[in-house]
């Protein structure tokens, strides 16, 4: 599937550096795959984590992304930016996972502080105060909830736009829609976020 989608995307004028590395992987250079993995592992895992909001699921899905990339190496053609292809696979897997409800269990929530992982969480001494920590966690929880409540496509668009700094054309390729549709998605998503986080916005502006 991954390769099929890859070849279906619009052609770019010249292959980027990542695409050149991927072409070397196609020719049997495993080291180039390691370079790609090191470069894109964190962005992919973080994107998927923000999409499904579950650490274990996001890592499992990320592994699947890179596994698919590796197994598609034989038929790889640099028809689009490598990152577009990579996030296309990641987005498809995330949307499938969300629709399957696979991330419903085992979700690490910020409000269940104190369950398990005691030592890892016992770092309050380094924080300025318990109250400030609570405020930060409450803000973080609200941001996560606000993102989680966005429709799937809007969520993916915001995450790619905000955290991965992807161009409109790339996001459009990933979401299989036009650039104007992406701009519309982002407009509506940020509008919703501004409304949902209005109290934080007001507090921050004071």
């Amino acid at each position: 599937m991954a390769q099929g989608v890859n070849t279906a995307m619009g052609a770019s004028p010249a292959p980027d550096l990542d695409a050149q590395l991927m072409l070397r992987v196609r020719d049997g250079d495993e080291e180039s795959f390691r370079v790609l993995l090191e470069k894109h592992r964190n962005p992919v895992v973080h994107f998927l984590y923000r999409m499904v909001q579950d650490e274990a699921v996001s890592e499992e899905l990320s592994q699947e992304v890179f596994l698919r990339v590796y197994r598609s190496r034989g038929t790889y053609e640099p028809t689009a930016k490598f990152t577009t292809w990579l996030f296309l696979i990641a987005t498809h897997l995330a949307l499938n996972s969300l629709r399957d409800g696979r991330n419903e269990r085992g979700q690490v929530r910020l409000d269940d502080d104190g369950d398990g992982d005691g030592p890892a969480r016992e770092v309050a001494d380094r924080k300025p105060s318990v109250e400030q920590q609570m405020v930060v966690q409450a803000r973080l929880w609200e941001v996560r909830e606000a993102i989680a409540m966005l429709p799937e496509k809007q969520r993916a668009a915001v995450l790619m736009h905000k955290y991965e700094e992807m161009e409109y054309s790339q996001i459009a390729n990933v979401l299989a829609c036009s650039e104007s549709a992406v701009k519309s998605l982002l407009f509506r998503a940020y509008e919703t976020l501004r409304a949902r986080l209005a109290h934080m916005v007001t507090a921050g502006a004071r």
């Binding site: 990320s62 803000r139 993102i147 502006a205």
Partner: peptide
């Protein structure tokens, strides 16, 4: 302000044995 609020959300580091 929304942009700054979103900056607050930084995911946990990736597992050491991921690779």
């Amino acid at each position: 302000a929304v942009w700054n609020a979103l900056d607050v959300w930084q995911p946990a580091p990736v597992s050491l044995d991921f690779n």
